[in-house]
Design a protein around this nucleic acid. Structure first.
Lengths: 166, 166
DNA sequence: TGCGAAATGTGATATTATAACATACTAAGG
DNA sequence: CCTTAGTATGTTATAATATCACATTTCGCA
């Protein structure tokens, strides 16, 4: 009832992002291998595009990036890849933005909450079981049986908060 | 740091819904009057349609109901009315469903969280400042300054939970 | 009454997502 | 190897959600 277990903070501007992306792709390979599911070409490319940054990206922006090199994929291809990636915990959907971004610790299933910067759009993922449990418990007092919880906070990330009114 | 202040629970099937709706409309009149804003014809009709039930309704479904009697309104009219109603706290938007529903206690501004039944779609509004504060505080530990919080839990409402696996 | 702001009308279009059906690929058993 | 059943992808169309831009009307008030 107390463990707030953050796994990834807001990255600073100078971090080596290619490392994040490479690591995520490597993890995805391992996870899919372990689970006996296939990280096919298009699924992998969608995941790569998503990991181009720490900013959530819309399905049609993913599509545009896929097709930037002359590709001819259709929206369905992207949505199907996203379905797969989400189902396997490799990607999260941000409901309040209709956008997608890469899960930073997909190796185990988890309840995630999101912090979304209104200035730079960066997202950090919390993983507070306590928070989740608090919602569940509060709901329970109304006789409501929780199956899924969406928690998305928007505001200023540390980097952007520093630059504006402190 | 402890007050969970629920204002409306899940209504049971037999409740006199015309009362809910009438009360909400009356409240809306009073609130707009007090604030010096205008609850115009179309805004009022949109609010009425929303209060036809305790189930969140999509913008185009609102439009269809408005036009059911031979009306000729366009989507913009509905979205503009919704903007007004949301801005004035009379209606909430459920991000995870792209749908709207009537606020049950609009007389004062508040942070709301939602419980959404996956079976019957009924929504109950929590108003737990504690929950909101927990999110804010947790975010703060990451240096994140919260401006807005979305909390939407889906699951089984008491009525539907009773009918299925107990 | 007439002015300026607010509200609404109108038509086009942007954005997000899914349906339906055809084709191609893959893995596993015979 | 070959078939085959299931999985994945291609393709076209369309549904569902939301906004832009500009014209017109209405309202409160000087």
């Amino acid at each position: 009832m107390s463990s707030s277990r953050p796994r990834r903070d807001f990255p600073n501007a100078e971090h080596d992002h290619s490392h994040c992306a490479a690591h995520a792709l490597g993890q995805a390979d391992l996870i899919c291998e372990a689970r006996g599911v296939r990280l096919t070409e298009i699924r992998r490319r969608v995941l790569e595009v998503i990991w181009d940054s720490h900013v959530p990206i819309g399905a049609y922006d993913i599509l545009a990036k896929l097709n930037a090199g002359g590709g001819r994929s259709a929206p369905m291809a992207v949505y199907r890849a996203l379905d797969f990636l989400i189902e396997n915990g490799l990607v999260h959907r941000i409901d309040s933005r209709n956008a997608f971004f890469g899960c930073s610790h997909p190796e185990e299933p988890h309840r995630a909450q999101f912090l979304i910067c209104n200035v730079c759009s960066a997202v950090a993922e919390l993983d507070s079981e306590a928070l989740h449990e608090t919602v569940r418990r509060t709901a329970r007092t109304k006789g409501f049986r929780v199956e899924n919880v969406v928690i998305e906070a928007s505001g200023r990330c540390p980097n952007c908060a520093r630059k504006s009114a402190p």
